[in-house]
Simulated assay, not measured.
Amino acid sequence: MEQVPWLTEREERVWRLFAAVLVLVPDEVEGQLQRDAELTHFGYWVLSALSEAPARAMRMSELAEMANGSRSRLSHLVAGMERRGWVRRERSTDDGRGSIAVLTDAGYAKVVAAAPGHVGAVRSLVFDALSPQGLDHLEAACTELLAKIAPKRPRTPRLARRAEDT
């Protein structure tokens, strides 16, 4: 069995800082969304992805992958969103087997109403703390990490456009 080398002191320090950010920022964003919009971050991500998709519709399997959730988690979420009138499911016209999630006008209004608070929280938690150079470094680091972790995973339309620009 191959021995894995220990992290250097600097790598361990950076890892612990990064891990703290990975926990604390999503917790704060989740709290803001639940308080102000009665949405989870996963729910906001799904509504947002649908709002950016052509015809505000996406195959459920693709949406689950794009939103970084399992198909069963997405199905449960969409069932609740259907009850609220934010999303409806339709059969795929391509093969008749798959399901398509379609954002309704009420769902679009929900994500539009939630966006200012969400953007404000993200700006306050992340961007207000970074210099322009820090933002460049964060973008480069995230791009490199995603290329390694999930090179073929579908991206939201905005992320996909940005990746094509680079």
Rank of each mutant, 00 (worst) to 15 (best):
S70E: 02
V29F: 11
A101C: 11
E38M: 10
R91I: 02
V46R: 08
G85A: 07
R71K: 10
A113G: 02
G107W: 06
L39P: 05
T93W: 09
V87R: 01
L77Y: 13
L50M: 05
D94V: 06
A101T: 03
P54M: 00
K110F: 04
N68G: 11
V102M: 01
R35V: 05
G31H: 12
A53Q: 05
S99W: 10
L39D: 07
R89I: 00
S99A: 12
H118T: 10
F127Q: 02
A55F: 06
L103F: 03
G120E: 14
E90D: 12
R73P: 01
D105P: 10
A37M: 02
V126H: 07
V29W: 09
H76I: 09
E52I: 00
L63F: 08
E38R: 15
V102F: 00
R35K: 13
G96K: 04
R123M: 11
T40F: 06
A113Q: 13
A115W: 13
S48L: 11
P26A: 03
V119T: 11
G43E: 15
Y108W: 12
M60A: 07
P116H: 09
R91W: 00
V122C: 11
V46K: 03
A53G: 02
L39F: 07
A49S: 11
D36F: 05
E28D: 08
D36C: 06
A114V: 10
E65K: 14
A67E: 06
Q32A: 10
R97T: 04
K110C: 12
L77E: 14
H41L: 14
V78Y: 05
A121R: 15
T40P: 08
V122G: 02
L50Q: 04
L39C: 05
N68T: 10
Q34K: 14
A55I: 00
M58Y: 01
L77T: 14
H41N: 08
S75I: 01
E52L: 15
R35Y: 04
A55H: 13
A79N: 12
G85V: 06
V119F: 13
G69A: 15
A114S: 12
L74H: 09
E52M: 14
R56S: 08
A101Q: 03
A101F: 02
E38F: 08
G85L: 06
R73N: 13
S75R: 12
L50G: 05
W86C: 01
D105G: 09
S48I: 00
E52V: 00
G117K: 03
G98R: 14
R59Q: 07
D36V: 09
G31F: 05
D95T: 12
R35A: 13
A64F: 07
R123G: 08
G43P: 10
Y44Q: 07
K110H: 10
P116E: 08
R84F: 02
P54A: 09
G31M: 07
L33G: 09
R88T: 13
A55R: 13
G98V: 00
S51G: 03
S75M: 03
E65V: 04
S99Q: 14
A37E: 03
Y108N: 13
M60W: 00
V112N: 04
R84L: 10
V46A: 11
R97Y: 09
G80L: 04
R59D: 11
Q34R: 15
P116C: 07
S99L: 14
G69N: 09
R88Y: 05
R89K: 15
A49W: 01
G80I: 04
T40Q: 08
